[in-house]
Design a protein around this nucleic acid. Structure first.
Lengths: 339, 339
DNA sequence: ACTGTCCCTGTAATCGATTACATCTACGAA
DNA sequence: TTCGTAGATGTAATCGATTACAGGGACAGT
């Protein structure tokens, strides 16, 4: 491999000068610069970034820790990360934890080992306190989730309010018995959505039936299964609210399989607004999250921290939006003149 | 930051010994080992991987160059990559080119700069020759695509045969006029699928109507638009074959919007067998690709190259499988007694 | 003529871990 | 007793780029 000293020799200058040419810092005469550039060209020199990173002790790499890259929501967030990272000359190291707390912890080590300059943590499994401990000194931004009163920067929507509004919308439609297809109970953002769901019911004086809250794992299949369990109950709800669009699509599938019509027999509400939600029949009513922006903002904040800039705000809440499409409607009883 | 020399001092040994303890190579007495481990523990030492990587001139990182991470097919492939990489102690640097040839070229530079030890190139935009030139000396594996007679290792299915079989299946159902919703024409794997489609038609003495081949860009929306263009034609086909499930789902959407029924009025065949294809109504007939395995095998080969092991085979073709579900059926004319 | 400042360039230390090589001990075989 | 070897540890060079520091020339201001 050609190294800087080879270039220096060929151009009859010192490595310091070559370095100055490459970094465009410090003074170099036009003539010398040309000599150096010519030598680089002739020798086909490429700087060894490993050496450079080591010396500058910065890898220009950030680590994205996500539970599952095949989840379209996270894909979009990662896309946002990647875009801004590339713009600012950083690379993204992908860490797919497969929802494992253990893997999540292991990955965090990489920052201490200087493999990455900072971390984007999407939906943490580690506890609040653990993040704070790890975050002391390490550049870290939590994306998609909000931790109350944490000192670590976060970027997310307000999942409690969003879920509350979605549930309220169903109630306003006339639904009284509303099921909830949840993601894993141990995920904060999911718990927030459950909380919003509960709040809306309670606010309207409706009883929260624990049996109507069924756990899934964000996949379509789990949504399908959760819906099947709900449909096996004695008293059916007239609406289901799923904590993700994928699970809502699974629910749709299960309903069709049982011969129930959406929204006539059952309203279905999703969450995230992934592109799929407009493709299913009927189109899915859902809560829109600004996925790319979530990723873009999270990494902007992270890079600012890494580069020592001050953050204006450390807890950013982006706005969500209820998107009403064809999968929700008043319950049939309402049509038929119910109460 | 605590460094190795601090540990060495504290344990009253040399850095060489500490290094030997950490790397588990060379001789170290039990007693010394314990002293060192204790010192590491007390000081909270974490090795600086940047320094280590530099010295060993290996980053233990591979670069995955993919056109679009939000495409569920690639997400699955990347998931496979990530899994095996993690198992073998490597990291995956994500390079989402957004389908840009320019970005693709830039990313390749990273290997020359030693940021990554090797590259997985999923659906290359750069030419055959360019890859071969880059590949000389650089560990590189092309995933998902087959290049005839190239010296670079590839892992893929046989897209020509797969598309031919899928088309043949539609012909066997009785379809005579079959449209094709294509991905971008400049993508090799897509061209292979078009070729298979053509071969099947020609083999059966059917005319290839160029107007029935419509270009999309793999997204559901583009599939929807392509289908709309096809539906605007004078003489409608009785079946459509889409080069990806996502585009097929878009086609489904467009057909429903126009009030056409699948498969009664139009059969729809997809490609990839992403999980979504079982969720839409009707379920999508498609060509199954072993997505995870594609990723897993590709990275295994790459890591073997990096670690200097010999490859048994350099051009691996994994098997595909036709999956027939509800979106394909004989054309109505056939039902009605047509020849 | 002297001083200060701006350009330009080079020398050499430095980042932290790895490793080739040297040294020393202990022990068994001859 | 001597020699060979395995075991244990240390010394110091090394990877390649960056950068603090020094030095020298040119030129303007006084």
């Amino acid at each position: 491999m050609v190294k800087m000293s080879d270039v220096a020799k060929r151009a009859n200058v010192s490595t310091a000068t070559v370095s100055r040419v490459l970094s465009k810092e410090g003074y170099v005469s036009e003539e010398t610069r040309n000599k150096v550039l010519e030598a680089i060209d002739i020798l086909g020199y490429t700087p060894n970034r490993l050496a450079s990173n080591f010396r500058k002790s910065s890898s220009h790499t950030v680590l994205a820790i996500i539970p599952d890259i095949t989840n379209p929501f996270f894909s979009e967030v990662v896309k946002g990360l990647e875009k801004v990272a590339a713009e600012r000359g950083y690379h993204v190291l992908l860490g797919d934890t497969g929802n494992s707390l253990h893997v999540e912890r292991d990955l965090m080590e990489l920052v201490r080992e200087q493999v990455a300059d900072g971390v984007i943590l999407a939906t943490a499994r580690v506890t609040n306190e653990e993040i704070e401990k790890l975050g002391r000194g390490l550049p870290i931004v939590v994306a998609c989730e909000y931790f109350d009163g944490i000192s670590i920067p976060t970027v997310s929507i307000d999942n409690v309010v969003a879920a509350r509004e979605a549930t309220q919308y169903l109630i306003d439609c006339g639904h009284r018995r509303i099921a909830f297809i949840s993601g894993r109970f141990n995920i904060v953002l999911n718990r927030d959505r459950i909380r919003g769901y509960r709040q809306a019911l309670e606010y309207n004086g409706l009883h929260v039936h624990e049996g109507l809250i069924q756990e899934g794992d964000w996949t379509m299949e789990s949504g399908m299964n959760a819906m099947s369990r709900i449909l096996a109950m004695d008293q059916l709800p007239t609406a289901v609210f799923a904590a993700s669009d994928e699970m809502a699509v699974g629910a749709l599938k299960s309903l069709k399989a049982k011969g129930l019509r959406v929204p006539d027999d059952m309203s279905v509400m999703g969450f995230d607004d992934i592109s799929l939600s407009e493709m299913v029949e009927p189109e899915l009513s859902t809560v829109q999250q600004p996925k790319r922006e979530l990723g873009e903002l999270a990494i902007r904040m992270l890079l600012n921290i890494i580069e020592g800039k001050k953050l204006e705000r450390t807890q950013v809440i982006l706005s969500h939006r209820l998107v009403i499409r064809g999968s929700t409607a008043p319950p049939r009883s309402a049509h038929e003149g119910g109460r």
